[in-house]
Design a protein around this nucleic acid. Structure first.
Lengths: 111, 111
DNA sequence: ATCGTCTATCGTCGATAAACGATGAACTCT
DNA sequence: AGAGTTCATCGTTTATCGACGATAGACGAT
């Protein structure tokens, strides 16, 4: 039926999901999310102290999470606030669940 | 509780999850999974025809999915069978759901 | 035995990711 | 004003990804 190159309706969301999954596919970024868990917002330095990585590296990882839409970013000058976008994260979980549903469904109906 | 640097018990599963998420974070591989959906097994050529990519590229993507443990592989000579590992896929979904749960939980209870 | 088909792998190339140090901007405090 | 903090970005280096063509192995059919 439709290939993945169907740019009209399917490609954008798919790319969105894959970008979010890519953002989640790094241990450091998962750890960052854990650091931001519970809805509390952290500044960069907090995460840095938690992670044992260079500040610039952590900043990059945060940027990736923000660009993927998983983390919100309030650029206050001194203490930028990073905060989990819980809705976006839940949406990713739902997308993965839907994918699993699709892949595991018994196709007895029409084929 | 445990940080990500806890190499004894926590690190291996984390890496396992991130590897699976990385495998899922590419549109072509999602499309491959859709092609394998419903528990039906496909050979490489079927996927190639479905995907508009070179055969070698598809074979690589399949390999990544197999190495991540999301797809089972029965190397028959002429028509290798690729098949979704539904349990593994469900486990990924559960892991993501648990992550979201952790990240969105109100931190009153025990962490 | 030979041809055609299907796979997997190799080698290559450009692009991207991951990590770091260094730097500069902006703010707070003394 | 000046020192100290915090942060984002730049530039660099190394490693990996994504895609392809080419190739070799294995099988079925002729």
């Amino acid at each position: 039926m439709n290939s993945i190159s169907d740019t009209s309706s399917c490609c954008a969301p798919v790319k969105d999901v894959t970008q979010k999954l890519a953002a989640l596919s790094h241990p450091a970024r998962l750890e960052i999310l854990r650091c931001l868990a519970g809805g509390r917002s952290c500044c960069c330095k907090e995460v840095v102290e938690h992670l044992d990585l260079a500040q610039s590296t952590v900043s990059q990882h945060l940027k990736i999470l923000v660009e993927a839409g998983l983390v919100r970013y309030a650029p206050e000058r001194q203490r930028s606030r990073y905060e989990i976008d819980q809705a976006a994260l839940a949406a990713v979980s739902a997308s993965v669940a839907a994918l699993v549903e699709t892949c595991c469904a018994v196709e007895g109906a029409n084929i």
